[in-house]
Amino acid sequence: MSKKPIIVFEGIEGSGKSHHIKIVSRYFDKNKVKYLRIREPGGSLNSEKIRKLILNKNSNFNVKTDLLLYLAARSENINLIKKYYKKRVILIDRFIDSTIAYQHYGMGVDIKIINIINKYLLKNIKVNFTFLNVVNKKNLFLRLKMRKSLNRYDQFNSSFYNKVQNGFLKLSKLNKKKYKIIDSNLDIKKNEKLIINQVKKLIK
């Protein structure tokens, strides 16, 4: 395991991944750990521009365009990731698995196409560890209701989110040693402690 790993936070809407990546960032700030934190879509300047286009409530792209826009956003982040790869800890809010879970398992896009383009973009860049945050239907929609504004991906039905979350779980089973499943229906403070303890092990 690299001492400067890429650590990814995955999960459907309302699963707590963005909260937990903030907690890890605060821990790093407090302990003077050098790191890069980005999100997908987003991160670099151009990727953030693509994010606004993808998530706009008025956007109505077909599934292939959606996929290509997400991958375009990733392409804009690659140079930023390469710059700090194995030099700093890299925290990513959504990455490769989100593309597969949403676009393949959720929307039915051919996984071969996704894998080919990801391989082309990432080359030798590899994720070291993934926290997969899972949430039940009740808490998912309760948390979405609490948001001040909803983007396009916050407005799917429960069947879609179920397919996506099951997709994430299938991916986690392919490499169990590099995944930790976080049940976000449980006490948030216990989950924060669990994640920080795992992160300590990854970077020590």
Rank of each mutant, 00 (worst) to 15 (best):
K3C: 09
P5I: 04
I6E: 08
G14I: 04
G14E: 03
S15P: 02
G16A: 09
V24T: 05
S25K: 11
K30E: 13
V33H: 01
V33I: 15
E40Y: 01
P41C: 12
G42S: 08
G43W: 04
G43M: 05
N46I: 09
K49Q: 13
I50E: 03
I50K: 03
R51F: 13
L53K: 11
I54T: 10
I54D: 11
F61I: 01
F61D: 04
N62M: 05
T65Y: 00
L67Q: 01
L68G: 09
A72N: 06
A72D: 01
A73K: 01
A73R: 02
E76H: 03
E76D: 06
E76K: 07
I78N: 02
N79L: 05
N79P: 01
I81G: 06
K82E: 13
K82D: 04
K82S: 10
K83N: 13
K83Q: 12
Y85G: 08
K87Q: 11
I90R: 10
D93K: 06
R94I: 02
Y102I: 09
Q103C: 09
G108E: 08
I111G: 08
I111W: 04
K112W: 12
N115P: 03
I116V: 14
I116N: 15
N118L: 15
Y120I: 13
K123Y: 08
V127G: 06
F129N: 02
T130Y: 07
N133F: 15
N133V: 03
L140R: 15
L140A: 05
R147F: 03
S149L: 06
N151I: 05
Y153E: 10
D154F: 02
S159G: 00
S159A: 05
Y161G: 07
Y161V: 07
G167F: 10
L169H: 03
K180I: 11
S184M: 03
L186I: 11
D187K: 13
D187S: 13
K189H: 13
L194E: 12
Q198T: 15
K200I: 14
K200N: 14
K201Y: 14
